[in-house]
Amino acid sequence: LRLEVKLGQGCFGEVWMGTWNGTTRVAIKTLKPGTMSPEAFLQEAQVMKKLRHEKLVQLYAVVSEEPIYIVTEYMSKGSLLDFLKGETGKYLRLPQLVDMAAQIASGMAYVERMNYVHRDLRAANILVGENLVCKVADFGLARLIEDNEYTARQGAKFPIKWTAPEAALYGRFTIKSDVWSFGILLTELTTKGRVPYPGMVNREVLDQVERGYRMPCPPECPESLHDLMCQCWRKEPEERPTFEYLQAFL
């Protein structure tokens, strides 16, 4: 395994491009020591290896001592969030954005069929390849993070704006909380990567959403798509659509 080009840095580690087995181009995620327990990670990795779908980033291998390494397929255009905010983002029109959403829903419909939960679905965790191919990455890892700023769910590192209220408040993460996050991801797509709930801080978002506030229809977004977002944001988790439905609708 060779680490060649550093692609990015996040709160919990770095991402590199490299070569595996001398020939395969891969992405390598390294986790800061202390982010998660190697034992817990190894268990999760076994499950992650079983998830194989064309719209999920394929896991190739893991190094399960500290520092933990995760070796996955390489996606040339990086994260969907950076892609939307970058040069190419300007030229993306609604049909392409909807197609990308459908690809993500397709990957998540598979996660749904496998009775698995992602827990951290957002544009930053979707990767883009050639020809606007989108794949879901980092599934299941969020559960293992041991950082206090994260586990408190009120901490600075927790993605509260993407998280369903029952998950943020009571830790009830299910495929239905993933559906909520998918609704937020749809706003990221239609606004080219704007942060959700602009002008609001995490605490406010939690309070307002509890009181029934939902983001309005983004500019140039059809009402039918906003309606779909609002279905994803129904207060009762069981009233939210399935990913199978979302995939078919898109």
Rank of each mutant, 00 (worst) to 15 (best):
Q43R: 09
H226R: 11
G86T: 10
C221K: 02
V57A: 11
Y170D: 08
F182L: 11
F158W: 04
G78F: 05
S37N: 03
W180R: 03
L92R: 09
Q58H: 13
T23H: 13
R113D: 14
E244M: 14
E210M: 06
V117D: 00
E66N: 15
W180M: 02
L246R: 01
F243N: 11
Q247V: 11
G10Y: 00
P222N: 05
T88G: 11
A109M: 15
T151L: 14
D147T: 08
P218M: 07
T163P: 01
R240C: 01
E65F: 15
L246A: 09
R113G: 12
A164Q: 01
V5S: 15
T23Q: 12
T23C: 09
E239K: 13
L228F: 13
H118Y: 03
L250Y: 13
Q208D: 08
A156C: 07
V179L: 07
I175K: 15
E238H: 12
L246N: 08
F12H: 04
F158Y: 02
E87C: 11
G107L: 00
Q208M: 14
G13N: 02
Q154I: 13
R113I: 08
P219V: 11
F158V: 05
G18Q: 05
W233N: 10
T191P: 01
V195P: 13
A101V: 12
Q154C: 12
F243R: 01
Y60G: 11
G13A: 05
A164K: 01
L51N: 07
G89W: 10
G171K: 04
E188L: 02
W20H: 15
L144N: 09
N21P: 14
G13D: 02
K85E: 12
H118T: 01
H226E: 09
L246S: 06
L250W: 07
L144I: 08
M108D: 00
V128F: 04
V47K: 00
Y116I: 15
L185K: 01
W16H: 15
N21F: 14
L42A: 04
C232M: 08
L250A: 09
L250Q: 06
L250E: 03
L185W: 14
G193S: 06
G13I: 00
A156D: 06
I160G: 03
L186S: 05
C230R: 13
V201W: 09
I184Y: 09
L94E: 04
L51T: 04
V5D: 14
G155R: 04
V179Y: 14
N125L: 00
D99A: 15
Q96S: 11
Q231W: 14
R214T: 12
M17P: 03
Q154A: 13
G86I: 09
Q208Y: 14
S37G: 10
L92A: 12
R172W: 06
V136Y: 02
L31Q: 07
P33N: 13
R172Y: 07
I145S: 04
V201F: 09
L189E: 06
A101L: 08
L185Q: 06
K135P: 02
F83I: 08
Y116L: 06
K32G: 03
R234C: 11
